[in-house]
């Protein structure tokens, strides 16, 4: 028996394993170890940044010059202190609140923009689709770091503006993925069936097409969180992002530059946090890509 016939014999049974597409996808996700690890890390991180600062007995802005540059783990400061004697752990967690919030919010905004553009371009196609996708290409051609910095130089930095700036440079990827998926689904018979019932364009886009593009959208959104966290770190590292004394992982790295030799932990911990968060989101994205692969459901 050829491998193709074996696969054909095995696949239908596997498809019957769950009832809804969602539960089958969850089953596949659970088998993806790195993605489960990533989800665990993100969960811990989220809990830590929410509740950590409440539990720790330090104020992230409290300056204590007598205990500056305390190496970890010292004087009750588990991760040491910075050049002003502020507790590094509590600052890392507070910075995590900012960085993760910006990451998630930028993801939501860019996913909304990207999905709307992608669905519209994919559904209508023709002139509308071409114009929209050429705009996407044009924005994509622009070096995003440069765009980020140029925008950040003109707009007063705050969490909201940084989020919007990052979202403005991150929605194109989602738009492309969604447009490709919608275009592929556009001429399937079930869409024709809906149109044959007199369904409006809005109905077809939101009820029939969008749920079938949910997988790629979720994957792209997850990867966008990772990219947004990195983007926030770039901008803040270069001094255009979140401003002192508010901490973000990026501006903590910026501060640490001067003390790389004398106090390397000031750079290592924020760097680790960024790496951990970004790789975790990327792992989750990979796992979701496998779990939500449209080919598993769209026979």
């Amino acid at each position: 028996m050829s491998s193709a016939t074996v696969a054909a014999a095995v696949l239908p049974n596997r498809r019957l394993a769950g009832t809804s597409p969602r539960s089958r996808a969850w089953g596949r996700f659970k088998r993806h170890r790195l993605a489960m690890f990533g989800s665990g890390v993100i969960l811990v991180l989220v809990f830590a940044v929410i509740f950590g600062p409440m539990i720790l007995p330090f104020d992230p802005l409290h300056i204590d010059l007598r205990h500056r540059f305390a190496p970890p783990p010292g004087n009750g400061h588990l991760f040491g202190t910075d050049q002003l004697g502020r507790d590094l752990l509590v600052r890392l967690l507070m910075a995590g609140r900012i960085s993760l919030t910006i990451g998630f919010m930028a993801m939501v905004v860019s996913t909304l923009i990207g999905t709307s553009v992608g669905v519209t371009a994919g559904y209508y196609g023709g002139l509308v689709g071409t114009v929209l996708m050429r705009i996407v290409d044009a924005v994509l051609c622009f070096p995003s770091v440069f765009l980020l910095l140029a925008l950040a130089a003109f707009i007063k930095p705050s969490i909201l503006t940084i989020t919007l700036i990052i979202a403005a440079t991150g929605w194109m990827e989602v738009a492309r993925v969604v447009q490709a998926q919608i275009k592929a689904l556009r001429h399937r018979d079930f869409i024709l069936a809906a149109e044959m019932l007199g369904a409006s364009g809005r109905y077809v886009m939101t009820r029939e097409l969008l749920p079938n593009a949910a997988g790629p959208i979720i994957v792209a959104a997850t990867l966008t969180v990772a990219r947004a966290i990195l983007a926030e770190a770039y901008v803040s590292f270069l001094g255009y992002g979140i401003q002192a004394p508010t901490a973000s992982w990026g501006n903590m790295l910026n501060n640490a530059q001067q003390y790389l030799n004398s106090a390397p932990w000031l750079a290592i911990f924020p760097g680790l946090m960024i790496t951990l968060a970004v790789t975790s989101f990327n792992f989750i994205g990979d796992g979701l890509r496998d779990a939500l692969d449209a080919r598993m459901d769209l026979t």
Binding site: P21, D189, G198, D297, L298, T299
Partner: peptide, 27 residues
């Protein structure tokens, strides 16, 4: 209309109830 391919003509993300009910809801 009834379609040739019974695999492509039903939305895989909808339950059978939603699929058969869609004409009623839309109309």
């Amino acid at each position: 209309m009834i379609f040739q391919d019974p695999f492509a003509s039903l939305n895989p993300r909808m339950t059978v109830g939603q699929i058969v009910g869609a004409p009623l809801r839309i109309q």
